[in-house]
Each structure stands twice: as C-alpha cells, then as structure tokens.
Nucleic acid binder design. Structure first.
Lengths: 152, 152
DNA sequence: TGACGCCAATGACGTACGAAAATCTCGACC
DNA sequence: GGTCGAGATTTTCGTACGTCATTGGCGTCA
C-alpha cells in the first residue's frame, strides 16, 4: 500500500503544526507511534513531503516590499532567464507560464529603492522584451498550503 | 536585546530543517540548549516565526495544475473579492497589487477541468471587470524562503 | 540589569526490533 | 463464477532504551 487516508490525515496534522511530535500525531490519529514514524518516512522518501520550514514573516525583519514581475522573453532565451531569476534568492517564486507573458516571478525586497535597483539590473538583459511590475499592497494569503480531503 | 545575529543564524538553520532538535541547533550555533530554546520562543512570540509547515509536493498528490489569476475589480468591491478568494483554500496566494490589475492570485487545481470550473464560478461575480489567467508550465522556484545575512 | 551558560530533574520524545494482526495471493474445490 | 484456506507479505503494535525539551535555580560577564 502506498498512499491512503492515514497519510492524508498525517499531512493535514503537520500542516497545522510542522513540529508536532510523533506521539502527539499518534494520539490524534489513533494509531501507534511506530505507524506514524513509518508513514512519515515513507512520505518523505516518496517526495510528497519535501522537508520542513518555519514560516518566516519577512515584513518583520526588514523586507517590506513584495513585487510581482511579469516578463516577455525572446523565445529561445527562456531557460536562461529563468535560471538567472532562480539564482536570485530574493525571488520566492519563479513560474514559466502561458498567456500574455512568459515568466511570472515574485520577490521580496528591503524597500522600493532595493526593488528598483534589482529590477533595473535584471532588465538590462536584452533578451527581456517587455516587463511589468506590480507591487503588493496587501498579501491576503501567502504561500498557504491547503489540507487534503479525507474519507468520512 | 531583541533580535540579532543569533536569531538570524537560528532562522537560517531552521530554514534548512524545520524539525531540527534544539540540541542539534545548539551544537551548530555553539550555544547552550537553553539559549536556543529562549530565542526560539521569543521569535515565535514576536511573530517572526509564525509556525512550521511541511513542504507538500502537490503535484505528487493529484494537483497537477497551477494557475495565476489577475483580476480587475470595481474599486469599492476590492475587499469583498479578496475575501472570496481568501476563502477558497485552493488559493495559495492572494495579493492586492498596484499596476494593470488589482488582484493577483495563485491557485492549485486537480486538472484543467477543475481549474476552468473554479474560475468560471469566480467570474460570475459582476464586480470583476476583467480577468486574465496564466497556467504554470514550470515552477522553477515556488514558495522559497531565503536565508538572512549574518555578520562575518 | 540583562543576556548567556551551566546544572539537575522530570517527563516527553524518536527509533529499533520482534511479535501480532491484517491483507493479499493463488490454486483447489463446489 | 464464486468461495475457501494455507502461506506469504505487508502493516501495525508494544516495549525498551537512549536521547531530548523544559523548567527553575544559580553563577558569570559586560
């Protein structure tokens, strides 16, 4: 058996508290500690759970500006531009997409000056044909992960 | 003292392994377990660390499509529309933004049918004046959190 | 004074392992 | 076709052991 109800419940529990102990998980799910441990290592080995992170509030540590960049790129240069964005660690998400633009990237910056500098240096790239920046006024939801449906 | 180098190092360590034990953190940072414990609870109380989550690979559990919606909204209806999006738990991020559009939202869907259904039902809202959907072809980076600079 | 380290005690925790239980497999049979 | 059961396989469980987190008290340093 690979992936069923218990695993979904396990993921849901961890989504609420990623540092919950195996024992508390076992109690909540009415199975033994060993079972939780086994399923959890399985989930990790299968790559369904890819690790654990604290949710860091970047606003509170001086990254006040979140911006969303949309880029149109010379077709053949797409992977190259994606790579460049990927290497900037202030980029929290970089997507290659269909539609008007080719790339949508989300980044966090100390302030608008920092943002402008970073973006300007990006846009010197001649392969970027067009760009469009939106500054986030309010992050109503950010990086939220949703729980999974469980039978009955 | 409120927030300094040790806290940054602590956050960086946790970004690498959010389930690391206090002891291993203490070893890595060359301080006592007690100190790690104190700083960690401080960070949590200050809201700099807002909890812990597993990184769930939604691709592997049947959510194959990620889409980015951009909406133009009747000015006064912005909070209302944001609320509606916020309540859909398939939305992983919902931003109110400057620029061409008013809202940018990112969601995950089981397949394109699921996506179309969800989006259509959203767009029945008469307060949404215009919309634009981009489907993600490749998530080069997603929900990545970057480490903090540490002095020397 | 406040940040930190150390110590000690206690209850909680993770992991390994062998036993028990549940589930699957597959040929034999009516 | 349907079902029965022995054996194999998988999953779960309880135990036990060494480690861990937490708390309070006390000393040190700047």
């Amino acid at each position: 058996m690979t992936y069923e109800n218990l695993d979904r419940k396990l993921i849901n529990e961890l989504l609420e508290d990623g540092r919950a102990s195996l024992r508390s998980l076992a109690d909540d799910l009415d199975v033994s500690v060993t079972t939780v441990s086994n399923h959890l290592t399985d989930l990790e080995e299968q790559g369904i759970i890819q690790g654990y992170t604290p949710k860091v509030n970047y606003d509170k540590i001086g990254y006040d500006v979140t911006a969303i960049l949309q880029l149109k790129v010379e077709g053949s240069a797409l992977p190259e531009v994606t790579d460049r964005l990927e290497e900037l660690d202030q980029m929290t998400s970089v997507y290659e997409v269909t539609g008007d633009h080719d790339i949508i990237a989300i980044g966090k910056f100390a302030d608008t000056d920092d943002m402008n500098a970073e973006i300007k240096s990006l846009l010197t790239d001649p392969e970027i044909k067009e760009s469009n920046t939106s500054v986030v006024l309010n992050a109503a939801v950010e990086h939220e992960q949703f729980g999974l449906d469980v039978e009955q």
